[in-house]
Design a protein around this nucleic acid. Structure first.
Lengths: 330, 330
DNA sequence: GTGAAAGCGCTAACAG
DNA sequence: CTGTTAGCGCTTTCAC
């Protein structure tokens, strides 16, 4: 293991001061051509690389952005992570991923670490966090971008606009002569309730359909929970003929159960997901879903973050359009 | 934005030196109970958190581990990332994800950054990297764990043992009266060639099957490449009746094409994937595949890394068993 | 049981 | 156009 080489070493070798080496690297002030050449030669020869930690300490800026999500293995978040990282790389920023398993304690711990580490910013999809949990970050002046269905106070937000898409979904359900709609929603204690549910309910009324409380079941965003929820719905005396799911993972679980139960989709029951996860077009029947563009969300978050880093003071919201994707499950 | 509070502030408030504050935090030397109490009170009151950057600079250790993979949106790597992160969190280590899009220049750039950032270690699935590209990391004394089918020299390795699984796959293919096997493999210039291919070829011989060169097609690990590859194979005069795919994404692409071509799977052609990505059980027919346990790979990598961090000097290889998963595509 | 002080390697005034 | 220097906030001897 070769001992670390520092700017001082480079400076000595090039016969200049370490300040000059620094300026050659940063270009923050002019350097005479031959001085620059000498420095560059020395850097090459010693294969010097700057110590990013020391730089961070000195400048008070780090190149790390935390991405905090319920589950990085969920394709939606994995795609978001990919897009975010790609977008940020050009700016010399790195992405630290953190899965919280949808647990509030982990969400909070991770937020705390983000300030300890003096991260440059955080992008988060909160799940059980309360708005006040963001206070420490605000105190620390740490830029935060929330990706969620609802606002978390005066914080940059990228949020889907699903109105048109949900309406189109409902139209199609109506066209298929379905009237009794149900939903397998996320857990009751998720932050901000379940906007996808509220939203659906409001629109359903306009379509003369009902979404009664007894046709809403809840669970985690897992395949198992989806199966359980669907089973429950099918056991109701007032049985739904169209089931919306909080996300596609839940919908796939519902499909599993339908298969077990010998229920035909869409023959007996229509099924609609949310997200358009990568596998939505892979299942049979192909899943009809309301698409939330993960990559676009990631890019929007990157943009908001860099704006902040460049000094924007007021918070901003960007809406990305959700899109109805008609496949074969309705 | 509240101004940063430092150890010196805490020390002043508690009427002690900053050294004592440090020792209270680290427990590296005894502190009198009431001193400790005073310090803890001050920390609480000022809501102080240590500056991890300063700590890193001083100790020369960082809490960041880079995970470098071809594509974080690939469910296999997303799962690996999740497991790695979960395992490392307990040790106070964070995971920085980096997608390389399978490009050597990006792989190399990322490796260079890992040393600049003085990361604690790197976990990498190289794709087009050559063994010599790892030299700078070795020079810097940076622990590296490679997750790959082949060795990259004297470096910690977690690698699958797919012998038994591949044999079982072949048995099943044979039992289905198939003899003409083909493979849609990864790109020719991937590092280490394509062990999955070599391996399959060697075993096929033992089974009295042939895997002739003209029945090997190559492409990236994408759905499109899978479709193209399958199309190509089906146009051969000597048409295969069983097709192995370099990974499950390729296999799904092959399914797309089979569907377009009106070819029945497994009726006309059997299809076998690699990885058991999350969607493998979702496609229809459900994909028969050779399972590489992503989460287990992640955990093994975490273990190797922490052993290194704890001083192990010699490199080690851990083999994780691949598993044949018989579903419906054979 | 506690404190003083010397840096870790870099950047950015300030001074020439 | 270049050099000197004072820290960034922490850990860790060394001394008491």
């Amino acid at each position: 293991m070769r001992e670390r080489v520092t700017m001082a070493d480079v400076a000595r070798k090039a016969g200049v001061s370490s300040a000059t080496v620094s300026y050659v690297l940063s270009g923050k002030r002019p350097v005479a051509p031959d001085t620059r050449a000498a420095v560059e030669a020395a850097i090459e020869e010693l294969s010097f690389t700057v110590n990013a930690t020391a730089r961070s300490l000195r400048t008070g800026r780090s190149s790390l952005v935390a991405l905090i999500v319920p589950d990085i293995a969920n394709p939606f978040f994995a795609q978001l992570a990919g897009a975010l990282q790609e977008e940020l790389r050009g700016l010399g920023l790195h992405v630290v991923v953190c899965s919280t398993r949808a647990r509030r304690d982990e969400e909070r711990a991770l937020l705390a670490e983000a300030v300890e580490q003096r991260f440059a910013g955080v992008v988060i999809t909160p799940f059980r966090l309360k708005p006040r949990d963001f206070q420490p970050l605000a105190d620390a002046g740490l830029p935060v971008v929330v990706s969620a269905d609802v606002s978390f106070g005066p914080i940059d937000l990228v949020t889907p606009d699903a109105r048109a898409a949900t309406r189109r979904a409902l139209e199609q359900v109506a066209a298929a002569q379905r009237r009794r709609i149900a939903m397998i929603a996320g857990p009751r204690d998720a932050t901000g309730g379940d906007p996808r549910l509220e939203h659906l309910r409001a629109l359903a009324l306009q379509f003369g359909m009902s979404l009664p409380h007894e046709l809403v079941v809840r669970g985690e965003h897992t395949r198992e929970a989806g199966a359980a929820g669907f089973g429950e719905l099918m056991s109701r005396r007032y049985r739904p003929d169209a089931v919306f799911c909080g996300n596609d993972v839940i919908a796939v679980g519902a499909m599993d159960k339908a298969h077990d139960l010998g229920i035909d989709i869409p023959g007996d029951v229509a099924l609609i997901g949310h997200d358009d996860a990568s596998f939505a077009s892979l299942v049979r029947p192909k899943l009809t879903t309301i698409r939330y563009p993960a990559a676009e969300v990631g890019r929007a978050a990157a943009r908001l973050l860099t704006e902040r880093l460049n000094g924007r003071e007021v918070h901003r919201t960007v809406r990305v359009k959700a899109e109805f994707v008609a496949r074969a499950s309705v």
